[in-house]
Design a protein around this nucleic acid. Sequence first.
RNA 1: GGCUGGGUAGCUCAGCUGGUUAGAGCGCGGCACUCAUAAUGCCGAGGUCGGCGGUUCAAGUCCGCCCCCAGCUACCA
Length: 518
Amino acid sequence: MAGPKRYYVTTPIYYVNDVPHIGHAYTTLACDVLARFKRLDGYDVKFLTGTDEHGQKVEKSAQDKGVDPQAFTDQVSQRFRDLLGTMNFTNDDFIRTTEERHKISVQALWDRLREKGEIYLDNYAGWYSVRDEAFYAESELTKKPDGSFVAPTGAPVEWVEEPSYFFRLSAWGEKLLKFYDENPDFILPKSRRNEVVSFVSGGLQDLSVSRTTFKWGVPVPGDDAHIMYVWLDALTNYITAVGFPDEDHGEFQTYWPADLHMVGKDILRFHAVYWPAFLMAAGVEPPKRVFAHGWWTNEGHKISKSLGNVIDPIELVEKYGLDAVRYFLLREVPFGNDGDFSHAAMVARMNGELANDLGNLAQRVLSMVNKNCDGAVPRHGDFTADDQEMLDAAHGIIHKVREHMDVQGFNHAIEDIWVVIRACNGYVDRQAPWKLKKEDPARMGTVLYVLAECIRHIALVLQPFMPGSMSKMLDLLEISTEHRTFDFIGYAHALEPGRALPAPQGVFPRFVEDEKGD
RNA sequence: GGCUGGGUAGCUCAGCUGGUUAGAGCGCGGCACUCAUAAUGCCGAGGUCGGCGGUUCAAGUCCGCCCCCAGCUACCA
């Protein structure tokens, strides 16, 4: 092994006050596929997810239910842990901001920033709406005839001042811009990077990093009247999970800086501006990449709680099947863009690509093998140019997929795999093994062998996307579980002629509409 | 308003630093095949490449202006 192959990927920690929805599943899915891919590719992977459990809203929700915040978060964070199993996610750790390890970590980071003079005490002043429990910028307010101001929500606001600690973010603008410049792929996609650069170029103000208006959070060391700002608290989870503040040993040495923080576009700024600034200020290396993905709409409509059209990932899985959903979410849309979830599109992908292209390919090939080759991997003769070309295409997929995965180009990776799947179907028709059966049985064996090898490679590279289904497909080829990493790509580990195979079973059934239609 | 990215076949989109008849998938039409999950393969249908003007021997591909769409324009997460 040349150099350490390690990969650290994170999801945001999800706010426990939310109910898990498709957005959460989507973010974590992308990370899961990357984590699985890297593991199969020989990397030592750490895949982290978790829950953000502090803040005023949580405190209030707990109060409303008459339970203490810790009991409340214990309960609601479970919903996020349940989703992991439903989606077949393979996180290596699950962090909660209410854990002791995290409190130690955040306070250590705070002390570090304080010692370096990056945090100072001052007053936070602004227009506050008691009704909305939020501060508003003056530009957001509307002036009423009587001279008072009103929030965008229509709520009255008042000018309030409270003591607060501030982080000297204003001092980090130039350094951030230099960092972005030296690390052009730090923020992906490119369009998001532009937005962030433009935002930072516009100048930064110091950031209020403590609150005194509620208690549910990590206390500021040495000043219990203050609770740490939720984002400083939340972002730190990424280093807590690798053992911070112990930077000299164990996981921190192995995994930090993280290779990728996967986030939704709504929280890009926190990850691409505040977080690297906090870290640089504390003398800790920033992560290598932040990728901001897009949002889903539902049948063309924006998703919102008030519209009641929130998509529940569990319902999707029950209706379409887990791997079909995993496939759809990463196939349908160029990763980074917004996408639309629709029943019609889902069924089109399921039937057109999974059932017809891939499922049927495996079924037609394996049925012929089962019926005409004594139910065993066929023996093959010399390969023709056509055979060779087909095999080369199958062997070569990994290179293209790897390139795409390294920039989170999931849909492109899948597209390139499908090019080979379609080529296989074309090869089957061209070679017509059902004719060779009568004319040249030995040649038929060679053709079916080539196809079985192609299916093996296709299944290998698709494992990260559809682990359950590809496991079945590899079972049909009698590939042992130890022979399913990318080390087994190529001739050296080709199928062994004569090995008995089980009777084929369909891996991707077609989706049939109910009589009623929905 | 400012900044950024877009407007290419019915739909979703590729088209790198300008150069032969503008591509893919889906959908549609026709043909072939019958191993397979009413699956597959082949062929085709001709889109003023948002509009106008310009640079060039040559422009979706560069420049200018205009129209339309989306995102960003700081401290709820």
